[in-house]
């Protein structure tokens, strides 16, 4: 039994936990070391091909640049909820379509490609899923909580595809609720939805702020599950390379 599952068992046993909440990306579903910017560039290439197959010619660089700017903008202008705000893929793609004069009817095509790309990038964290299933069988409810621009249904579908044996009792995405884990609002929504007190919840995830500091300050039990240092180093290096690639893209035939 791994240290992670031992820690979950211990906290559940010692604190009368009724609800297990788990972060999704880089916790329940593990990404490779490709950083977000590089993922966007890859997705843009796939989207350009998908659009070309429908007779719409759009440069991959244009899709990528529009996505970058739309993402930056969407996070700043989307409606605030209780003082917090979170991007949503629908708004981001609506902006991309407007920037590139694409027919809005093509937005679902962009979203499908995004989903396919995510599926390709992610791997299920099987040991963690096994531990969650054990506790669920023992009577704990298990839900996911994610700070992400993807809606709950999409995240649930990704989990179902990557960890088909894992059954969940629900999920909460910041994109749908407009509040985040890092701000604490999503945990309030989650506890209200599940009818539990903070002391009855164990949340686990990789982010020091969103998955540890904020829920701990709210009285929720937490378990930090960071990616290994080697992964983080490679991820950081690839992030820098992605920024250089981004600059090179902008300088191409300026």
């Amino acid at each position: 039994m791994s240290r992670l599952t031992e820690a979950i068992d211990r906290i559940v046993r010692d604190h009368s936990i009724r609800l297990l909440s788990v972060d999704v990306f880089d916790t329940l579903l593990l990404r490779g070391t490709r950083p977000e910017m590089a993922r966007f560039a890859r997705v843009a290439g796939m989207q350009a091909r998908a659009l070309a197959a429908r007779g719409v010619a759009v440069e991959a660089d244009a899709l990528y640049a529009a996505r970058m700017i739309a993402a930056r903008t969407a996070y700043r202008v989307i409606r605030t909820v209780e003082g917090e705000r979170e991007g949503h893929l629908d708004l981001i793609f609506a902006m991309v379509a407007r920037a590139l004069d694409l027919d809005p009817a093509l937005v679902p095509v962009l979203a499908e490609v995004e989903f396919a790309s995510e599926l390709d990038e992610l791997a299920g964290n099987v040991p963690l899923a096994d531990a969650l299933m054990r506790h669920r069988a023992a009577g704990c409810r298990v839900v996911f909580a994610s700070d992400m621009y993807l809606p709950e249904a999409t995240i649930a579908a990704l989990i179902a595809r990557k960890l088909p044996a894992l059954e969940l009792d629900g999920g909460y995405s910041s994109a749908d609720h407009g509040v985040t884990k890092r701000g604490g609002g999503l945990f309030r929504v989650l506890m209200a939805g599940e009818g539990v007190e903070p002391a009855q919840v164990l949340h686990m995830g990789d982010s020091a702020l969103a998955d540890v500091a904020t829920p701990r300050a709210m009285g929720i039990h937490v378990l930090h599950t960071p990616r290994p240092p080697g992964w983080q180093r490679i991820h950081g290096l690839r992030q820098k390379l992605a920024i250089l690639h981004h600059r090179a893209m902008l300088r191409r035939a300026a």
Binding site: E59, A62, A65, A66, A99, L100, L250, R251, A254
Partner: peptide, 12 residues
């Protein structure tokens, strides 16, 4: 000009 061209010219 189109979106990408404008972005590239602005960056330059």
């Amino acid at each position: 000009a189109d979106f990408l061209t404008v972005e590239r010219r602005a960056d330059a």
